[in-house]
Amino acid sequence: MTIVFYVIAAITVAGALAAMLLKNTVHCALALTVAFAGLAIQFLELDAQFAGFAQILVYIGAVAILVVFAILLTRGSETPKEGVFSKTWLAGLAIAAMVFAVLSWAVLNSTSSLPGDSPKPTVSVLEIGNALMGRYVLPLEIVAVLLTSALIGAVIVAKHEKGSAK
């Protein structure tokens, strides 16, 4: 494990924690962007350049902006009087802690059949494009249909209808 991994991991976890703990919702969205950027750098560290840049484009470029728009459209940045956590926060926290305990126990106690240090894979965008157009062309088409229907669905759902709204 390199020092770069630990630094980026600390930044990512700090961003994720801030996104889930801060009171102001806009600050949460900004902290979420930090966590997404940290994950993108981890992807680049893992020699997955394409996935790293896709992460930057999709998450930092689109999803984070979408979240900020939703917060501003719903006046969600106002902190509610009853606090930001629900009444059953203790149960939720306990479930999350147990999930983490089980996952980390499984990771640390399993003997991996994989070699510890594998050679750095060299994958060009050309190979990814060939794979997307060859072996993975059916999933690609299905994702295209899904994205189109999700786009139309989101517009129809969020569209302002006069008369029906109070």
């Binding site: 976890v13 889930m20 994950l39 479930i95 999350a96 802690a97 999930v99 983490f100 996952l103 980390s104």
Partner: peptide, 9 residues
């Protein structure tokens, strides 16, 4: 796993 637990919480 840590990120998953934070998101779940």
């Amino acid at each position: 796993a840590l990120l998953f637990a934070i998101g779940l919480a």
